[in-house]
Amino acid sequence: MIPASHYLILSALLFCIGLLGILIRRNILSLLLSIELMLNAANLNLVAGAAMHGQLDGQLMAFFVMVIAAAEVTIGLAIAVLLFRRGGSLDTHDIQQLKG
């Protein structure tokens, strides 16, 4: 039997990889991919928590996270398309107009 801590450590590792991706990427689409990675790491944590307590609630939370991630991707991609149409680039260094 695999101990619960192994699942939690794997989830933490995936989360940190996603965080590193957000910090070292410059393309907006790649940033969105890293956010997806972090959300999935959180999902693994929730499902492992459900198995630790023997209840289904954690799995339902993972399902809701999935639903919210779908909505987030829809809007994020729409914004990316809009930015590309405005400035012709998706590089975060080229998008200067939103700076205060």
């Binding site: 039997m1 101990p3 619960a4 801590s5 450590i9 492992a48 630790m52 307590h53 023997g54 289904l56």
Partner: peptide, 13 residues
Amino acid sequence: MLHKMPLPALQMP
């Protein structure tokens, strides 16, 4: 932190 933490065994709902 997680390595040493005492956690309940998995019971698979």
